[in-house]
Computed example of a mutant assay.
Amino acid sequence: MRILTATILAAALALPAHARTPSDIPEVVERLLVVGMADELREQCGDVSARVVRAIGYLRETAQVALDAGFTRAEVEAYVDDDAEKERLRGIAHRLLLDLGVQEGDEASYCAVARGQIEGGTAVGRLLR
């Protein structure tokens, strides 16, 4: 039994440790997806614009969630600056918008979803006007 335990421990130590990032906090990811969805709707629908001050506050609150979870400001900034993570989150946000009814290249569908989010008072809608 000791040999098995020692073998398992040695194998575990040989594996690279998973570096904890703010993406391990579901609330951070959810909040960033909200921002990503609002941003894509704003970019694709000329009838809506961003509530910039509200969005900045929302992003500051999101950073605070990560800081409260024990991440340093440098770790939060590194996460926010990670291009691969940005693309991953953009892809997820885009798929969520597709599920809500947007059709690529169809501005009217983006506007319809944006208006629905605004009228529904969703987190995405609160970042748009």
Score class of each variant (00 low, 15 high):
residue 6 A to D: 15
residue 29 V to P: 01
residue 65 V to F: 11
residue 92 I to Q: 11
residue 129 R to H: 00
residue 111 C to A: 05
residue 22 P to M: 05
residue 46 G to A: 01
residue 114 A to C: 12
residue 6 A to P: 07
residue 115 R to D: 09
residue 40 E to G: 11
residue 66 A to E: 08
residue 70 G to W: 06
residue 108 A to R: 10
residue 76 V to Y: 00
residue 48 V to N: 00
residue 8 I to P: 03
residue 117 Q to E: 15
residue 117 Q to P: 10
residue 47 D to G: 00
residue 11 A to F: 15
residue 83 D to I: 15
residue 33 L to K: 03
residue 48 V to T: 01
residue 30 E to G: 11
residue 72 T to K: 03
residue 34 V to S: 09
residue 116 G to W: 14
residue 94 H to N: 10
residue 97 L to M: 07
residue 47 D to Y: 03
residue 86 K to M: 11
residue 57 G to T: 12
residue 99 D to I: 04
residue 108 A to Q: 05
residue 84 A to N: 05
residue 101 G to C: 02
residue 115 R to C: 06
residue 54 R to Q: 08
residue 9 L to I: 06
residue 65 V to C: 12
residue 44 Q to I: 00
residue 53 V to N: 06
residue 43 E to D: 07
residue 110 Y to T: 03
residue 46 G to S: 04
residue 79 Y to M: 02
residue 29 V to H: 02
residue 91 G to C: 09
residue 56 I to P: 05
residue 90 R to T: 13
residue 37 M to I: 11
residue 87 E to A: 12
residue 96 L to K: 12
residue 126 R to Q: 09
residue 57 G to L: 13
residue 113 V to C: 04
residue 20 R to S: 06
residue 31 R to T: 07
residue 16 P to G: 14
residue 96 L to N: 10
residue 128 L to K: 00
residue 126 R to N: 09
residue 107 E to A: 04
residue 116 G to C: 13
residue 70 G to N: 03
residue 8 I to S: 06
residue 76 V to W: 01
residue 59 L to W: 06
residue 51 R to T: 03
residue 2 R to A: 13
residue 75 E to A: 07
residue 102 V to C: 02
residue 116 G to Q: 09
residue 30 E to W: 11
residue 31 R to A: 13
residue 17 A to K: 11
residue 114 A to H: 03
residue 59 L to H: 09
residue 14 A to K: 08
residue 99 D to E: 10
residue 47 D to V: 00
residue 129 R to A: 06
residue 97 L to R: 04
residue 121 G to F: 08
residue 89 L to N: 05
residue 101 G to A: 02
residue 25 I to M: 03
residue 118 I to D: 06
residue 49 S to W: 07
residue 121 G to V: 09
residue 21 T to M: 01
residue 62 T to E: 12
residue 11 A to P: 10
residue 98 L to P: 08
residue 4 L to H: 11
residue 73 R to W: 09
residue 101 G to Q: 00
residue 82 D to C: 02
residue 11 A to H: 12
residue 71 F to N: 02
residue 95 R to E: 14
residue 58 Y to R: 04
residue 56 I to D: 08
residue 51 R to S: 04
residue 58 Y to D: 05
residue 117 Q to Y: 10
residue 13 L to H: 11
residue 56 I to L: 10
residue 98 L to E: 10
residue 66 A to V: 13
residue 34 V to K: 08
residue 20 R to V: 03
residue 16 P to K: 06
residue 35 V to C: 13
residue 10 A to T: 08
residue 127 L to W: 00
residue 12 A to G: 13
residue 79 Y to K: 07
residue 98 L to F: 05
residue 112 A to Q: 02
residue 5 T to F: 15
residue 15 L to M: 15
residue 73 R to T: 12
residue 9 L to Y: 01
residue 88 R to E: 01
residue 36 G to V: 06
residue 95 R to Q: 15
residue 44 Q to Y: 04
residue 81 D to G: 11
residue 86 K to Y: 12
residue 90 R to F: 10
residue 30 E to H: 09
residue 106 D to Q: 14
residue 116 G to I: 13
residue 23 S to E: 05
residue 10 A to N: 05
residue 58 Y to C: 04
residue 107 E to F: 04
residue 125 G to D: 01
residue 55 A to Y: 01
residue 58 Y to F: 07
residue 60 R to G: 14
residue 58 Y to I: 04
residue 127 L to P: 02
residue 29 V to M: 03
residue 37 M to Y: 06
residue 77 E to A: 14
residue 44 Q to G: 04
residue 44 Q to A: 07
residue 1 M to S: 12
residue 97 L to V: 12
residue 62 T to L: 11
